[in-house]
């Protein structure tokens, strides 16, 4: 596993990093946790002129609740930070459930939430979680900062909406308007495997009425899939056996699985339905 020759820079400020990106354009790649980029380089699947290591840039490793109640996650916030986050345990059950299911403990020590979203692997767990939560990406570039909804940010397999010269510096989850509950269920053959099927569920309720529902699916399509019909079936009424069953069925219809060595398309669709039903059921959704 010996990569081709590449240049390596480790800038100490965001401006310096953006300067490198401006010069090198598409030939540069940003290194945060490196859990996808380094294997790609070592396998010589990606040939890169310049690696811009942002790990020396101070002030990017945070995750916090902003004054408006939203949650923000810096570009160097690691999966392991989220796995052990008291804040998430208290306020964001879907993310708290997903964090310990990301890859394996070694990957979680290095890998980052924002980096994982940028990599846009269709089997990545965080994109589903963020879609279900209506999350956003903050990109910094030569023209300043802009906000991109995660559902627009993920453009396809391994494709994100960053423009040349931009760095994703933060991920955000908007402030909830009701009581929060949710879960992330993942079927994997082994710890560290990609999801055979992953299901993210995020609910907001006022009283017993569901005011917002987010359901997104991992591993059952060319990209993470937002199950909008299933979401809509839940909004505006209380959760009951009928609506749960209907949401499960609609989510399974939204899935576009393919048969592979992780299972048949039929099986994966069935697990989507089972998991959505379980995640919405009385013992499935964890309240914040």
């Amino acid at each position: 596993m010996y990569p081709s020759r590449f240049r390596y820079e480790a800038p100490r400020s965001l401006d310096e990093a953006l300067d490198f990106l401006r010069v090198y354009g598409d030939e540069a790649k940003v290194l945060a946790g490196g859990q996808s980029l380094i294997p790609l380089i070592k396998l010589r699947f990606a040939s890169i002129e310049l690696v811009v290591d942002i790990n020396n840039i101070p002030g990017l490793d945070y995750h916090r609740q902003e004054s408006d109640g939203s949650l923000s996650f810096g570009a160097l916030c690691r999966h392991v930070d989220l796995e052990h986050s008291e804040l998430l345990r208290r306020s964001q059950p879907t993310m708290a459930a997903a964090a310990p299911l990301i890859a394996d403990p070694i990957v979680r020590n290095r890998g980052t939430l924002v980096g994982s979203l940028c990599h846009a692997d269709p089997q990545g767990d965080w994109a589903s979680v963020m879609m279900a939560l209506g999350g956003e990406i903050i990109a910094a570039g030569p023209g300043g900062r802009r906000t991109i909804p995660v559902s627009d940010f993920i453009m396809g397999p391994f494709q994100n909406a960053l423009r040349p010269g931009e760095i994703a510096v933060e991920a955000r989850v908007p402030a909830p308007k009701g009581a929060v509950s949710g879960n992330y269920l993942k079927l994997e053959r082994r710890v560290g495997d990609f999801a055979t099927v992953g299901v993210a569920v995020a609910l907001e309720t006022s009283g017993s009425t569901v005011s917002r529902a987010g359901i997104a699916l991992t591993g059952v399509g060319p990209s993470n899939i937002q199950a909008t019909a299933a979401e809509q079936a839940l909004v505006g009424s209380a959760l009951n056996a009928n609506s749960i069953q209907q949401a499960g069925r609609l989510a399974a219809e939204a899935a576009q699985p393919k048969t592979d060595h992780r299972g048949s398309a039929e099986y994966k669709r069935h697990v989507v339905e089972t998991f959505v039903t379980r995640a919405l059921g009385s013992r499935g959704a964890v309240a914040a």
Partner: peptide, 8 residues
């Protein structure tokens, strides 16, 4: 005996 095979 992967889960999909047992389920099938």
């Amino acid at each position: 005996l992967l889960p999909d095979r047992v389920w099938e």
